[in-house]
Amino acid sequence: MDTELVRKAAAGDSDAFEQLVLSYEKPIYNLCLRMCGNADDAMDLTQETFLKAWRSLGSFRADAAFSTWLYRLCSNLCIDHLRREQKRKVLPLHVEDSDGDGRPLDVPDPAAGPEERLSAQEDRQRVADALQSLEPEYREALTLRVIHDLSYADIAAVLQVREGTVKSRIARAREKMREAMQKLGNKSTAPSSKQMRHERRDAP
């Protein structure tokens, strides 16, 4: 059980800490991998996450779930990493403002059909690329939901946002990702959401 292991680890028991590492290295690695997009950085960030955890266990309060706390450490390290990368590459990183999560979603593009079956390796790469193309906030929320199977409440605790924000952020992430999948699937002839909306308005 985490609580006992955390208590022992906080008292300096590295065997107990190793048990925690064994439990969480896979999910933490996968969060890092999806956030930064490559295995080398993901390994570094995973190591950094556990090091931070080891160093700051003394300030961990048992009233929060250890997993939530650990994901939050990891999330913040990943965002810091991306921010440093962003400074180097000058790429847009963030959604413009947090209110954006509350905006209505674009009307979906009905002409864009269901995706063809995702099965082969190239489809896997397409999924990875589409996910990677999302802004980090969207990518992170969707990853925590789908890969880590966290509830909206848990994700809200990790990201320190309201549950309603998580809900709309994930919905938006799915729609953005679907659009990205279409683009990567060479379906560029399909009208965009905006075009569709325009056509609808003009329709008799």
């Binding site: 996968n30 556990f50 079956r117 896997r124 789908v146 890969i147």
Partner: peptide, 24 residues
Amino acid sequence: AYTAMDQGILELSEEPPAQLHDRI
């Protein structure tokens, strides 16, 4: 499309490299 996408995302989950645990 969403259902297929979620399945695709789930399948992105990987085992960490073997040396990661010892490194940590």
